[in-house]
Design a protein around this nucleic acid. Sequence first.
DNA 1: CTGCATGCAAACCGTTTGCATCCCC
DNA 2: GGGGATGCAAACGGTTTGCATGCAG
Lengths: 139, 139
Amino acid sequence: MNAPTPMIRLTTQRQIILEELSKVKTHPTASEVYDMVRKRLPRIGLGTVYRNLELMAENGMIVKLEVGGTQKRFDATTDAHYHIRCSCCGRVDDIDVPVLDSLVDAASENSSYQIIGHHIEFTGICSKCREEDNITSLQ
Amino acid sequence: MNAPTPMIRLTTQRQIILEELSKVKTHPTASEVYDMVRKRLPRIGLGTVYRNLELMAENGMIVKLEVGGTQKRFDATTDAHYHIRCSCCGRVDDIDVPVLDSLVDAASENSSYQIIGHHIEFTGICSKCREEDNITSLQ
DNA sequence: CTGCATGCAAACCGTTTGCATCCCC
DNA sequence: GGGGATGCAAACGGTTTGCATGCAG
Protein backbone atom coordinates (compact mmCIF):
# COMPACT_ATOMS: atom_id res chain seq x y z
CA MET A 1 0.00 0.00 0.00
CA ASN A 2 2.20 2.91 1.10
CA ALA A 3 5.70 1.54 1.22
CA PRO A 4 8.02 2.80 3.99
CA THR A 5 9.38 5.49 1.67
CA PRO A 6 12.45 4.01 0.05
CA MET A 7 14.22 7.38 0.11
CA ILE A 8 13.01 9.94 -2.38
CA ARG A 9 15.71 11.44 -4.51
CA LEU A 10 15.90 15.23 -4.50
CA THR A 11 16.05 16.24 -8.11
CA THR A 12 15.77 19.79 -9.40
CA GLN A 13 12.54 18.89 -11.15
CA ARG A 14 10.97 17.57 -7.95
CA GLN A 15 11.98 20.60 -5.92
CA ILE A 16 10.58 23.02 -8.45
CA ILE A 17 7.35 21.10 -8.96
CA LEU A 18 6.78 21.12 -5.20
CA GLU A 19 7.72 24.79 -4.89
CA GLU A 20 5.41 25.87 -7.67
CA LEU A 21 2.53 23.79 -6.35
CA SER A 22 3.04 25.23 -2.86
CA LYS A 23 2.96 28.76 -4.23
CA VAL A 24 -0.66 28.67 -5.35
CA LYS A 25 -3.83 28.28 -3.35
CA THR A 26 -5.74 27.02 -6.37
CA HIS A 27 -5.69 23.31 -7.07
CA PRO A 28 -3.97 23.02 -10.41
CA THR A 29 -4.27 20.17 -12.85
CA ALA A 30 -1.13 18.37 -13.98
CA SER A 31 -0.85 20.45 -17.11
CA GLU A 32 -1.30 23.66 -15.15
CA VAL A 33 1.59 22.58 -12.95
CA TYR A 34 3.51 21.76 -16.11
CA ASP A 35 2.95 25.30 -17.39
CA MET A 36 4.07 26.87 -14.11
CA VAL A 37 7.16 24.70 -13.89
CA ARG A 38 8.08 25.14 -17.53
CA LYS A 39 8.71 28.84 -16.96
CA ARG A 40 11.65 27.86 -14.80
CA LEU A 41 12.63 24.57 -16.49
CA PRO A 42 11.71 24.98 -20.14
CA ARG A 43 12.92 21.51 -21.13
CA ILE A 44 10.94 19.54 -18.54
CA GLY A 45 8.64 16.89 -19.96
CA LEU A 46 4.97 16.52 -19.19
CA GLY A 47 5.63 12.88 -18.30
CA THR A 48 8.07 13.94 -15.60
CA VAL A 49 5.44 16.21 -14.07
CA TYR A 50 2.88 13.40 -14.00
CA ARG A 51 5.37 10.89 -12.60
CA ASN A 52 6.48 13.21 -9.84
CA LEU A 53 3.05 14.44 -8.84
CA GLU A 54 1.98 10.81 -8.57
CA LEU A 55 5.07 9.88 -6.58
CA MET A 56 4.76 12.82 -4.21
CA ALA A 57 1.11 11.96 -3.65
CA GLU A 58 2.04 8.37 -2.79
CA ASN A 59 4.56 9.68 -0.30
CA GLY A 60 2.02 11.98 1.30
CA MET A 61 3.96 15.12 0.39
CA ILE A 62 1.00 16.43 -1.58
CA VAL A 63 -2.60 15.33 -2.14
CA LYS A 64 -4.13 14.12 -5.35
CA LEU A 65 -7.71 15.34 -5.39
CA GLU A 66 -10.14 12.70 -6.54
CA VAL A 67 -12.78 15.19 -7.53
CA GLY A 68 -15.32 15.27 -10.30
CA GLY A 69 -14.55 16.77 -13.67
CA THR A 70 -12.23 15.41 -16.30
CA GLN A 71 -8.84 16.10 -14.75
CA LYS A 72 -7.19 15.21 -11.49
CA ARG A 73 -6.05 18.16 -9.39
CA PHE A 74 -3.23 18.54 -6.90
CA ASP A 75 -2.95 20.26 -3.55
CA ALA A 76 0.18 21.03 -1.56
CA THR A 77 -1.89 21.41 1.63
CA THR A 78 -2.16 17.98 3.17
CA ASP A 79 -4.39 18.72 6.20
CA ALA A 80 -7.91 17.43 5.87
CA HIS A 81 -10.26 19.96 4.36
CA TYR A 82 -13.09 20.02 1.87
CA HIS A 83 -13.45 21.47 -1.60
CA ILE A 84 -15.93 23.19 -3.83
CA ARG A 85 -15.91 22.82 -7.59
CA CYS A 86 -17.44 25.26 -10.02
CA SER A 87 -19.85 23.39 -12.29
CA CYS A 88 -19.27 26.03 -14.88
CA CYS A 89 -15.50 26.44 -15.26
CA GLY A 90 -14.25 23.48 -13.23
CA ARG A 91 -12.05 25.43 -10.83
CA VAL A 92 -11.68 24.00 -7.34
CA ASP A 93 -11.35 25.99 -4.12
CA ASP A 94 -11.04 25.12 -0.48
CA ILE A 95 -14.16 25.54 1.57
CA ASP A 96 -14.21 26.43 5.25
CA VAL A 97 -16.51 23.80 6.70
CA PRO A 98 -15.39 21.87 9.79
CA VAL A 99 -14.09 18.38 9.07
CA LEU A 100 -16.46 15.67 10.25
CA ASP A 101 -14.29 12.79 11.42
CA SER A 102 -17.32 11.23 13.03
CA LEU A 103 -18.62 10.41 9.56
CA VAL A 104 -16.07 7.65 9.19
CA ASP A 105 -17.32 5.97 12.36
CA ALA A 106 -20.92 6.29 11.24
CA ALA A 107 -20.00 4.82 7.88
CA SER A 108 -18.02 1.95 9.40
CA GLU A 109 -21.10 0.71 11.17
CA ASN A 110 -23.08 0.56 7.97
CA SER A 111 -20.72 -0.93 5.47
CA SER A 112 -18.79 -4.07 4.73
CA TYR A 113 -15.89 -1.93 3.54
CA GLN A 114 -12.87 -1.27 5.66
CA ILE A 115 -13.14 2.48 5.59
CA ILE A 116 -10.06 4.58 4.97
CA GLY A 117 -11.38 8.10 4.70
CA HIS A 118 -13.86 10.43 3.16
CA HIS A 119 -14.09 13.62 1.21
CA ILE A 120 -16.86 16.14 0.72
CA GLU A 121 -17.12 17.95 -2.56
CA PHE A 122 -19.53 20.84 -2.86
CA THR A 123 -20.63 22.02 -6.25
CA GLY A 124 -21.66 25.53 -7.14
CA ILE A 125 -21.01 28.49 -9.39
CA CYS A 126 -17.98 30.62 -8.62
CA SER A 127 -18.32 34.40 -8.43
CA LYS A 128 -16.39 34.88 -11.65
CA CYS A 129 -18.74 32.68 -13.65
CA ARG A 130 -21.77 34.36 -12.11
CA GLU A 131 -20.48 37.78 -13.15
CA GLU A 132 -19.90 36.59 -16.68
CA ASP A 133 -23.22 34.78 -16.50
CA ASN A 134 -21.38 32.02 -18.14
CA ILE A 135 -24.22 29.76 -19.20
CA THR A 136 -21.90 27.30 -20.87
CA SER A 137 -22.27 23.59 -20.53
CA LEU A 138 -21.89 22.42 -16.97
CA GLN A 139 -19.08 20.04 -16.16
CA MET B 1 -28.77 25.23 -17.83
CA ASN B 2 -31.43 22.52 -17.61
CA ALA B 3 -33.99 23.19 -20.31
CA PRO B 4 -37.66 22.47 -19.52
CA THR B 5 -37.33 18.98 -21.01
CA PRO B 6 -38.13 19.38 -24.71
CA MET B 7 -39.84 15.99 -24.69
CA ILE B 8 -37.59 12.98 -24.61
CA ARG B 9 -38.19 10.48 -27.33
CA LEU B 10 -38.76 6.92 -26.19
CA THR B 11 -36.49 4.82 -28.35
CA THR B 12 -35.81 1.15 -27.84
CA GLN B 13 -32.20 1.90 -26.99
CA ARG B 14 -33.19 4.38 -24.29
CA GLN B 15 -35.67 2.03 -22.72
CA ILE B 16 -33.21 -0.81 -22.56
CA ILE B 17 -30.36 1.32 -21.26
CA LEU B 18 -32.60 2.57 -18.48
CA GLU B 19 -33.94 -0.91 -17.73
CA GLU B 20 -30.50 -2.45 -17.53
CA LEU B 21 -29.17 0.36 -15.36
CA SER B 22 -32.16 0.03 -13.04
CA LYS B 23 -31.57 -3.68 -12.70
CA VAL B 24 -28.26 -3.40 -10.90
CA LYS B 25 -27.43 -1.89 -7.54
CA THR B 26 -23.81 -1.38 -8.52
CA HIS B 27 -22.88 1.86 -10.23
CA PRO B 28 -21.68 0.81 -13.63
CA THR B 29 -19.39 2.74 -15.92
CA ALA B 30 -20.56 3.60 -19.42
CA SER B 31 -18.81 0.61 -20.94
CA GLU B 32 -20.27 -1.71 -18.31
CA VAL B 33 -23.70 -0.43 -19.29
CA TYR B 34 -22.71 -0.96 -22.91
CA ASP B 35 -21.84 -4.60 -22.18
CA MET B 36 -25.13 -5.19 -20.36
CA VAL B 37 -27.19 -3.56 -23.10
CA ARG B 38 -25.32 -5.26 -25.91
CA LYS B 39 -26.61 -8.64 -24.78
CA ARG B 40 -30.07 -7.49 -25.77
CA LEU B 41 -29.16 -5.10 -28.59
CA PRO B 42 -26.02 -6.48 -30.17
CA ARG B 43 -25.74 -3.70 -32.75
CA ILE B 44 -25.96 -0.76 -30.37
CA GLY B 45 -23.02 1.64 -30.55
CA LEU B 46 -20.95 2.78 -27.61
CA GLY B 47 -21.60 6.37 -28.68
CA THR B 48 -25.33 5.84 -28.32
CA VAL B 49 -24.84 4.60 -24.78
CA TYR B 50 -22.75 7.64 -23.87
CA ARG B 51 -25.17 10.04 -25.54
CA ASN B 52 -28.18 8.57 -23.80
CA LEU B 53 -26.62 8.25 -20.37
CA GLU B 54 -25.62 11.89 -20.65
CA LEU B 55 -29.06 12.91 -21.85
CA MET B 56 -30.88 10.98 -19.15
CA ALA B 57 -28.60 12.50 -16.54
CA GLU B 58 -29.40 15.99 -17.81
CA ASN B 59 -33.09 15.19 -17.56
CA GLY B 60 -32.74 13.92 -14.03
CA MET B 61 -33.84 10.40 -14.92
CA ILE B 62 -30.54 9.01 -13.68
CA VAL B 63 -27.50 10.43 -11.89
CA LYS B 64 -24.01 10.77 -13.26
CA LEU B 65 -21.64 10.16 -10.39
CA GLU B 66 -18.79 12.63 -10.27
CA VAL B 67 -16.59 10.37 -8.22
CA GLY B 68 -12.88 9.76 -8.16
CA GLY B 69 -11.23 7.16 -10.33
CA THR B 70 -10.82 7.28 -14.07
CA GLN B 71 -14.36 6.64 -15.27
CA LYS B 72 -17.70 8.27 -14.65
CA ARG B 73 -20.34 6.01 -13.16
CA PHE B 74 -24.13 6.00 -13.42
CA ASP B 75 -26.89 5.42 -10.92
CA ALA B 76 -30.59 4.84 -11.58
CA THR B 77 -31.44 5.83 -8.00
CA THR B 78 -31.92 9.57 -8.00
CA ASP B 79 -32.61 10.22 -4.29
CA ALA B 80 -29.74 11.88 -2.46
CA HIS B 81 -27.37 9.37 -0.93
CA TYR B 82 -23.65 8.93 -0.50
CA HIS B 83 -21.16 6.50 -1.95
CA ILE B 84 -18.09 4.52 -1.06
CA ARG B 85 -15.40 3.67 -3.55
CA CYS B 86 -12.96 0.80 -3.22
CA SER B 87 -9.42 2.16 -3.52
CA CYS B 88 -8.36 -1.22 -4.70
CA CYS B 89 -10.74 -2.25 -7.48
CA GLY B 90 -12.62 1.00 -8.05
CA ARG B 91 -16.13 -0.36 -7.47
CA VAL B 92 -18.65 2.03 -6.00
CA ASP B 93 -21.45 1.16 -3.57
CA ASP B 94 -24.12 3.09 -1.77
CA ILE B 95 -23.48 3.80 1.87
CA ASP B 96 -26.15 4.18 4.50
CA VAL B 97 -25.22 7.44 6.19
CA PRO B 98 -27.91 10.10 6.71
CA VAL B 99 -27.84 12.93 4.18
CA LEU B 100 -26.64 16.18 5.72
CA ASP B 101 -28.58 18.94 4.00
CA SER B 102 -27.39 21.37 6.64
CA LEU B 103 -23.92 21.18 5.11
CA VAL B 104 -25.03 23.29 2.19
CA ASP B 105 -26.18 26.07 4.51
CA ALA B 106 -22.92 25.91 6.46
CA ALA B 107 -20.98 26.05 3.23
CA SER B 108 -23.00 28.95 1.85
CA GLU B 109 -21.94 31.12 4.75
CA ASN B 110 -18.29 30.50 4.10
CA SER B 111 -17.96 30.77 0.38
CA SER B 112 -18.31 33.20 -2.47
CA TYR B 113 -19.78 30.41 -4.57
CA GLN B 114 -23.47 30.06 -5.17
CA ILE B 115 -23.77 26.55 -3.82
CA ILE B 116 -25.78 23.96 -5.71
CA GLY B 117 -25.17 20.77 -3.81
CA HIS B 118 -22.68 18.43 -2.27
CA HIS B 119 -21.59 14.85 -2.29
CA ILE B 120 -19.70 12.72 0.19
CA GLU B 121 -17.45 10.00 -1.10
CA PHE B 122 -15.97 7.56 1.34
CA THR B 123 -12.97 5.50 0.36
CA GLY B 124 -12.11 2.08 1.67
CA ILE B 125 -11.36 -1.50 0.77
CA CYS B 126 -14.31 -3.66 -0.21
CA SER B 127 -14.72 -7.09 1.35
CA LYS B 128 -13.87 -8.87 -1.88
CA CYS B 129 -10.51 -7.10 -2.18
CA ARG B 130 -9.75 -7.76 1.48
CA GLU B 131 -10.37 -11.49 1.03
CA GLU B 132 -8.11 -11.60 -1.98
CA ASP B 133 -5.70 -9.36 -0.08
CA ASN B 134 -5.47 -7.61 -3.31
CA ILE B 135 -2.47 -5.38 -2.68
CA THR B 136 -2.49 -3.98 -6.17
CA SER B 137 -1.96 -0.34 -6.94
CA LEU B 138 -4.57 1.86 -5.34
CA GLN B 139 -6.75 3.98 -7.55
C1' DC C 1 29.90 4.24 -11.19
C1' DT C 2 25.35 2.67 -11.15
C1' DG C 3 20.63 2.96 -10.96
C1' DC C 4 17.01 5.91 -10.56
C1' DA C 5 15.16 10.01 -13.06
C1' DT C 6 14.55 12.57 -17.19
C1' DG C 7 13.00 14.12 -22.00
C1' DC C 8 10.76 12.69 -25.78
C1' DA C 9 7.37 10.53 -28.38
C1' DA C 10 4.30 7.02 -29.08
C1' DA C 11 0.68 4.37 -27.05
C1' DC C 12 -3.41 4.09 -24.27
C1' DC C 13 -8.09 4.63 -22.59
C1' DG C 14 -12.29 6.90 -21.80
C1' DT C 15 -15.18 9.95 -24.09
C1' DT C 16 -16.92 12.88 -27.84
C1' DT C 17 -18.19 13.91 -32.47
C1' DG C 18 -19.22 13.98 -37.69
C1' DC C 19 -21.78 11.84 -40.90
C1' DA C 20 -24.76 8.96 -43.58
C1' DT C 21 -28.70 6.29 -42.60
C1' DC C 22 -32.73 5.07 -39.91
C1' DC C 23 -37.09 5.36 -37.66
C1' DC C 24 -40.29 7.47 -34.19
C1' DC C 25 -43.78 10.82 -33.97
C1' DG D 1 -42.28 13.13 -44.37
C1' DG D 2 -38.98 15.28 -41.37
C1' DG D 3 -36.07 15.90 -37.50
C1' DG D 4 -34.17 13.79 -33.96
C1' DA D 5 -31.67 9.23 -32.93
C1' DT D 6 -28.59 5.64 -34.33
C1' DG D 7 -24.26 2.93 -35.77
C1' DC D 8 -19.90 3.43 -37.09
C1' DA D 9 -15.43 5.09 -37.05
C1' DA D 10 -12.36 8.64 -36.56
C1' DA D 11 -10.83 12.32 -33.52
C1' DC D 12 -9.90 14.05 -29.01
C1' DG D 13 -7.93 15.06 -24.34
C1' DG D 14 -5.80 13.44 -20.38
C1' DT D 15 -2.59 10.18 -18.74
C1' DT D 16 0.82 6.48 -18.98
C1' DT D 17 4.78 4.18 -20.75
C1' DG D 18 9.12 2.51 -23.36
C1' DC D 19 13.44 3.77 -24.28
C1' DA D 20 17.91 5.95 -24.79
C1' DT D 21 20.39 9.32 -22.20
C1' DG D 22 21.56 12.06 -18.02
C1' DC D 23 22.72 12.93 -13.44
C1' DA D 24 22.28 12.46 -8.14
C1' DG D 25 24.17 9.84 -4.59
